[in-house]
Simulated scan of single mutants.
Amino acid sequence: MENSVPGAAGTARPAGRTTVVLRRFLRGRSAPAGAAVLLLLFLLAFAGPLVSPWDYSHIDYTALRSGPGAAHWWGTNRIGQDVFAQTVRGLQKSLLIGLLVALFSTVLASLVGACAGYFGGWPDRLLMFFVDLLLVFPSFLIIAIISPRLRNGGWVAFVGLLAVFGWMITARVVRSMTLSLKEREFVKAAVYMGVGPLRIIWRHVLPNIASFLIIDATIAVGGAVMSETALSYFGFGVQAPDVSLGTLIASTTGAAVTYPWMFFFPAALLIVFVLAVNLVGDGLRDALDPTSRRAARRAPRRASAPTAEGGRR
């Protein structure tokens, strides 16, 4: 029995990185709550239309600006459309836009930044010049000018516009991280072994900055939803008859005091979603890089801790 215990302990495999990160994430205070809220919002957005007795475009002429009740759970708007059906449809559209914009912008930023940092020379100068050029352009004004001309493309064209102007800062960070990684021994060993540069970027550079990309993409979802809401509020985003959280908030702002249910539900879902995304982003940062929270905790302790001589009498 005594000899079997060390043998059993010796055969146990250490926990993988994914398991360790998941445990750190779940040990957090606010991150699991944020993840649970995000899950509930996604269920509401995609399962809500299935349980609602009303379609978002259906008009009930017998219930104009009706308050929440049994027939209309969240009331109706000024023309008799069901607020619940409209809100879950708008939430669904905003979530899709946010996810796609974050995905496209993160992929573009990682490829451009990694290639610029690894190759250096004229490719680096050319790519960074293009990045700086896009940073100078007023993105909000350009999207406002171009989006009305792309109405035939629907909301997919709007996603492309948001993604084009949402990746430059991330690309610069990826470039600086790649400049540091390409001097590491494992990258130099791959070069000496004759591995191609694109394969090195794919197999060695990008996996080592995946933690940053995951955190950045998570936070970018909330930023993309806020951008979509702002543009749709001014009429440059999702176009009628489709709806998003931005168009719903814009159309019901004037009724926020007299008919609060028309404005409250889309505005509340937008606030809850952005807060939940920020909580998840902070939790992923602490789980993937625990030293960041430790450093933040140690700094005030070191500043306030008394010296050995000061503590003695």
Rank of each mutant, 00 (worst) to 15 (best):
E2G: 10
E2Y: 13
P6T: 02
P6M: 02
R13I: 05
R13N: 06
P14S: 10
R23E: 10
F25E: 06
S30F: 11
P32Y: 00
G34T: 00
A35E: 01
A35T: 01
A36R: 02
L39F: 06
L43R: 13
A45M: 03
L50A: 10
W54T: 03
S57G: 09
Y61Q: 12
T62L: 08
G69N: 10
A71Y: 13
T76A: 05
I79R: 15
Q81N: 07
V88M: 09
V101M: 10
A102E: 02
S105T: 09
L111G: 10
C115F: 11
Y118L: 07
F119K: 10
W122C: 04
R125I: 08
M128D: 00
L134H: 15
F137L: 12
S139R: 08
L141Y: 09
I143H: 02
A144S: 11
I146V: 12
I146R: 13
S147C: 03
S147F: 00
R151I: 02
G153H: 09
V156P: 11
A157G: 06
V159P: 00
L162Q: 04
A163F: 00
A163I: 02
F165A: 06
G166S: 12
G166H: 07
M168V: 10
I169R: 15
R184E: 07
E185A: 07
Y192S: 12
G194E: 01
G196N: 14
L198A: 15
I200Q: 06
I201T: 07
I201C: 08
L206I: 11
P207D: 07
I214M: 12
G223N: 11
M226R: 15
A240F: 06
P241D: 01
S244T: 02
L248Q: 02
I249M: 08
A250N: 05
A250F: 00
S251N: 15
G254F: 01
T258G: 08
Y259P: 01
F263D: 00
F264M: 08
L270M: 07
F273M: 14
L279F: 08
G281F: 02
L284H: 05
S292R: 15
R293I: 05
A295P: 03
A299K: 15
E309I: 07
